[in-house]
Amino acid sequence: MTTASTHWMRLLRLMILGLGALLMLFPFFFMISTSFKPQSEVFSAGLSLIPQQWAIIANYSKAMTRIPMLQILANGLIVCASIVFFQILFALPCAYALAKLKFKGREFLFGLVLLGLLVPIHAISIPLYTTARYAGLLNTLAILVVPFTLSVFAIFLFRQFIKTIPDDLIMAARTDGLTELAIVWRIILPNAWPSASAFAIFSVVAHWNDLYWPLISVSKMHLATPPLGLLFFRAAEAGDDYGALMAATVLITAPLVLFFLFAQKLFIEGMTMTGLKG
């Protein structure tokens, strides 16, 4: 009796979860399916996931050639990698100071960090834009990176993690002759790897997909990041060529999905490998 009911409950649970997953994934299936269809079929009545006529080569070659797709992907890679690199470079020493060093005004500074968490990019985009204009940074790759190099979220996240590192470890490092910066890079960073990679996932996903800031600060095709490139592609070439547009979307989404799967594996490995707890 009980085993039968738990069996049914289990089945019900799985069905609900499966339905949810299908609902979430359907737009992606539809995107891939559309990217395989010729234009005539996209607009035909009725909904079929499997195309009757295949137009893979036509759609994807359009997506690759009408806009400089490789350049756009490279831009995305450069921008995201630089952002993550600088975010960690700046945030980790800040977080270390806020977590482990004693100085006057530390709590106040940490309060500012928390306050910074509340300010969205949209609120400061106009001052940022004018500053960038005067600095002559509009329409450069740099302007896509610079505003994001200091992440209060990263500072907050790393501070919370560094707080859990025992003081003894840091004191041992000091007596062993490490300077404070050496402690950050030689002791804290290797141990903070799980939280650093978790943060990297957040950051890369957010900035790879960001359309708002690139749209404001960049207007040249050769500087476009993936979402902006997609916008250019739609505006210029493929107003109603949804097959090609979806092909371009697939090309732009795929690296992110691959990165996510890879980083997730690293992330979990990092969690189990460090064994920070004695």
Partner: peptide, 19 residues
């Protein structure tokens, strides 16, 4: 600073670098 005193310290928690 501790780094410049050239003394060695052994801690109760051992404080070995876990990585």
């Amino acid at each position: 600073r501790a780094a410049d005193r050239d003394m060695a310290m052994v801690f109760q928690s051992y404080a070995l670098y876990p990585h």
